[in-house]
Amino acid sequence: MSDGVSRRSFLKTAGASAAAASLAQVAQAAIAPPEAGVPATPTLGPDATDVTLSVNGKPMKLRVDPATTLLSALRMECDLTGAKEVCDRASCGACSVIIDGRLVASCMMLALDAEGTKITTVEGLAKGDELDPLQLAFVKHDALQCGYCTPGLVVACRALLDKNPKPSLSQIKSGLSGNICRCGTYTNIFNAVLEASGQKPIADSAPV
């Protein structure tokens, strides 16, 4: 923003006073420490703990409590807001990220469980100003309408092509089965994947 205050930093500041208020309540409800002598098992939390996540090739030092999801850590702590929270139950795919080459719903994974992995978000697909060929194909085939599912779908398509560079139409459908587009732009999405994998798009009028 021109005045030097981004929307996100404003929201974070606004949230800070509310957080300070709730901190007092948490302190009152402090939980008794675990009894001594019982298993010397490593534990994290329940208070916030330091963690370093590798996101899009960069180490990100964060302080999160165990109940923080990876999605929440990415959006609120790393300022990477491409992954979206929609269903919050791993049912819609809007929060999809790639972890060690696997497509994952970041809303249903603890941030602490992502430590030691390589995380790729939609922000990590383009090389500088140069879009990923898949992103260009999304633009060319108008593979979105409202766009809310798009970051998750682009990531799901990338994960699919990384594993299977020339997927058949049924493999595309199966690979994207965890991503829902409420606007119903599936035909155009399938075409974008076909285009990005050097295959002939299906006719727009063809039933899918």
């Binding site: 948490v26 939980i31 675990p34 009894e35 019982v38 298993p39 098992t41 490593p42 534990t43 994290l44 939390g45 329940p46 409590d65 165990p66 109940a67 603890l110 602490l112």
Partner: peptide, 25 residues
Amino acid sequence: MNRFTLVRPKSYADASGVLTSKTYS
């Protein structure tokens, strides 16, 4: 989600011990 402790046992036997101890409610 509520506050919780994330316990990382090193073996299944340790995990079982945590489940049956009274450390957590």
